[in-house]
């Protein structure tokens, strides 16, 4: 086993996913198979290969510092489940 149910629970919590016991079991098995499959890559010797962060041979793609029009407020708020005046509204967040 490459992955445990505990790890699945941990990752699910980070992703704010609520899984049933059945789902946990099923997903643990599926992830385990996936990871097993990917393990094959470990057969390769990558000692002299630098880590790849991007597959395209591109670098330094910039834009000039120019202000462009933003969205009208009505469009910005259009998909919000809840809004009031010019704000998005979310469940109360209290720090401390």
């Amino acid at each position: 086993m490459a992955i445990t149910t505990k790890e699945v629970e941990y990752v699910a919590r980070l992703a704010r996913l609520r899984l049933s016991e059945d789902e946990k079991e099923r997903i643990t098995q599926q992830l385990d198979q996936t990871l097993d499959y990917v393990q094959q890559l470990n057969q390769l010797d990558t000692k002299d290969v630098p880590p790849t962060s991007h597959v395209l041979e591109l670098k330094n793609v910039w834009r000039e510092d120019q202000v462009q029009p933003s969205l009208p407020l009505t469009e910005t708020l259009a998909n919000a489940p809840q809004s009031k005046d010019e704000f998005f509204v979310v469940p109360k967040v209290i720090e401390g």
Partner: peptide
């Protein structure tokens, strides 16, 4: 703000 928080992005 009652019953929630406001978000300004």
């Amino acid at each position: 703000v009652q019953n929630g928080s406001h978000v300004d992005l």
